[in-house]
């Protein structure tokens, strides 16, 4: 029983209470929301699968500071993203830009759904043309 309780208590260890970037960056609610959104769109380049909002790497906290300063200086979203890609390339963006190099990446989900749909239609069509009972299979009850 004690073990069960201990395990249940352990689940609190992953609660968002322990989020990395907890200090409020801006007094203004709209600015704070914008800060949180932008920090979720930028990749921490040390720990590649984390955004700078989620990571406690030094580089992530340095980039968060940079983001706060750029926002405080009145830079637009585009200017901030440009600042980051000028230094780190497109990889710093969690959402890659739509470009000639990336069209396949963006089109892939559509292509997969289309391909699967076409295959499904072909199979269903063919199956519906088959006779109701398979002459090769006498079925249950046949002796």
């Amino acid at each position: 029983m004690k073990i069960v309780v201990a395990l249940m208590l352990l689940t609190f260890a992953v609660s968002p209470i322990f989020a990395i970037d907890i200090e409020r960056a801006f007094e203004d609610d709209a600015q704070q929301a914008r800060y949180e959104r932008l920090s979720r769109e930028l990749r921490c380049l040390v720990c590649r699968s984390e955004t700078i909002a989620d990571s406690n790497a030094t580089l992530a906290s340095d980039l968060r500071r940079q983001l706060r300063e750029l926002m405080a200086a009145g830079k637009s979203d585009e200017q901030i993203m440009q600042y980051m890609t000028d230094r780190y390339g497109d990889y710093v963006l969690y959402k890659p830009p739509l470009a000639a190099r990336t069209w396949l990446l963006w089109a892939a989900p559509v292509l997969f759904v289309l391909g699967g749909g076409i295959a499904a239609v072909i199979v269903i069509r063919r199956k519906s043309h088959l006779p109701e009972e398979d002459p090769a299979d006498p079925g249950l009850g046949a002796s």
Partner: peptide, 13 residues
């Protein structure tokens, strides 16, 4: 110490 120049140089590791 603050990593500002490193950011300008696109240093990540």
């Amino acid at each position: 110490a603050e990593g500002r120049v490193a950011i300008d140089w696109g240093v990540y590791g």
